[in-house]
């Protein structure tokens, strides 16, 4: 028993990897579709957008790159669908150079699906260097920070930006972030200086670290990981890739829980045997 326990504790991690792969793949092939509960932090984002008057200005910052696509793309798609359905004017941008193409693709796809027009209903500004410095520049003059959008169209005079001079004219802002520059940077250099309301969306890995900002009101809502995206999809009543992925996430969590349980059983067996031999 002792030898078995020792062998199991030092199990080849590739076996664990295989179990995880199976836990991800099987539910994707045979989904079991359980209901999704809505957390107050996700509902807060939904409610805020829901309460915005038509043609309000909504800024969505895609602060991620393709590596976080599975978690953050469903959040972006759900938010854009909601914003376009509410007939908001949407400004998009990114602080992550390698995320520019992905962000533009998401924007164009959802806008086409919702029948929205570039330049009139939305604009994608693209990427510009500087992160915090860029946000400060946008807070002073949006047109100097981004003289043209991602399509090289001059931003000055664009119908979607009518009445928008700087970040002060933004009604709501959400940063979908996989790291830095992201939510904290937007709060420090953006909301704190230019006084707009903002929320965050993040990968599951960094979401728990953002709860203090949520509790203190520095962000008014938080969409955390795939679970948060699935909750938002449920709220807007349009199921997407996040809802589909939740079964796989459920199964993976359970495999990890079982592994942790087994590891502890073997650990106590070993400790018990060692205690006896002493």
């Amino acid at each position: 028993m002792k030898d078995f326990a020792r062998r199991m504790i030092g199990i080849d991690r590739r076996i664990i990897f295989l179990l995880i792969a199976a836990a991800v793949l099987l539910p994707l092939l045979r989904p079991f579709g359980l209901p999704i509960k809505i957390s107050p932090e996700v509902r807060a984002v939904y409610d805020y957008i829901e309460a915005l008057p038509e043609r309000s200005v909504f800024l969505l910052s895609f602060d991620f790159d393709p590596s976080s696509k599975p978690e953050l793309e469903p959040q972006a798609v759900a938010l854009l669908r909601h914003a376009f359905r509410k007939n908001l004017r949407v400004i998009g941008m990114t602080h992550w150079l390698t995320g520019t193409g992905l962000a533009d693709d998401i924007f164009s796809r959802v806008a086409a699906e919702m029948g929205r027009e570039r330049g009139k209903d939305y604009v994608f500004l693209g990427w510009s260097p500087g992160a915090g410095s860029l946000v400060i520049a946008m807070g002073q003059d949006l047109y100097k920070a981004f003289p043209s959008d991602y399509q090289k169209t001059p931003t000055q005079g664009m119908p979607v930006l009518e009445g928008v001079k700087s970040l002060r004219d933004v009604n709501y802002m959400v940063s979908l972030a996989a790291g830095n520059p992201g939510i904290e940077m937007w709060y420090v250099f953006g909301k704190d200086k230019y006084r707009f309301e903002m929320a965050g969306g993040s990968t599951g890995v960094i979401a728990p670290g953002l709860y203090p900002f949520l509790r203190s009101g520095q962000i008014n809502g938080l969409i955390g990981g795939l679970q948060g995206a699935a909750e938002y999809e449920t709220l807007i009543k349009r199921k997407g890739t996040a809802t589909a992925g939740m079964d796989a996430q459920s199964a993976t969590h359970f495999v990890i829980i079982v592994l942790v349980f087994l590891c502890n059983v073997f650990y106590f067996v070993l400790r018990g045997e060692e205690g006896k031999s002493n």
């Binding site: 590596s67 976080s68 996989a178 790291g179 830095n180 990968t203 890995v205 960094i206």
Partner: peptide, 8 residues
């Protein structure tokens, strides 16, 4: 220093 999802 500071790290994000790459840490693990």
């Amino acid at each position: 220093g500071s790290y994000f999802a790459e840490s693990l």
